[in-house]
């Protein structure tokens, strides 16, 4: 009986509403966390798995040795590699395509790579205007590698002790 009266009084005094409004009010004056993308960016982990790149050695030699482990491990079958013996006798790719429309960014390719060649960079905003634009070929991936090498190298070094 007593409880019944308490409930009725509570509903008349709009206690629940006030509680809700209090929460709203608290956030109204709290510091905002909305990020104004693209002008602002959220912080990224060094392990972020974004757009792919093929790395090169400092002397400009490509790292990839066409072992095709990434192709084999790729669960989305997004990677296509063709290989041959280059004139200097080394094993090299003649074709290295990643179909980003298939890629699920799982990072297996990077994990399987014995020479740290294929990596996922922090780049997450890229687009294509035609469907074919998202088929990244070897020159495009190498260019990515060239462009972001410093960042890639820093991230890998930082992560090295956990690998």
């Amino acid at each position: 009986m007593f409880n019944r009266i308490k409930d009725v009084l509570r509903s008349l005094m709009l206690v629940e509403l006030l509680k809700g409004m209090m929460l709203t009010g608290r956030y109204l004056f709290a510091r905002k966390i909305t990020v104004q993308y693209p002008e602002e960016r959220t912080p990224q982990s060094g392990r972020f798995r974004g757009l792919h790149a093929l790395r090169l050695y400092p002397n400009g030699e490509e790292r990839c040795i066409a072992c095709k482990l990434c192709e084999a491990v790729c669960p989305a079958l997004a990677i296509t590699i063709e290989s041959e013996q280059r004139d200097d006798g080394t094993r090299r790719t003649t074709r290295y395509d990643i179909d980003l429309t298939k890629c699920i960014f799982c990072g297996f390719c990077e994990e399987s790579c014995p020479v740290d060649s294929i990596v996922e960079t922090r780049v997450l905003d890229y687009h294509g205007e035609k469907r074919g634009d998202l088929l990244y070929t070897k020159p495009m991936l190498l260019e990515m590698g060239r462009k972001y090498e410093t960042q890639i190298a820093t991230d890998r070094t930082a992560d090295a002790k956990f690998r």
């Binding site: 095709k68 192709e71 084999a72 290989s83």
Partner: peptide, 9 residues
């Protein structure tokens, strides 16, 4: 055949 394909392909 050198370096042209992998057995699993």
């Amino acid at each position: 055949f050198r370096y042209s394909a992998r057995t699993w392909e």
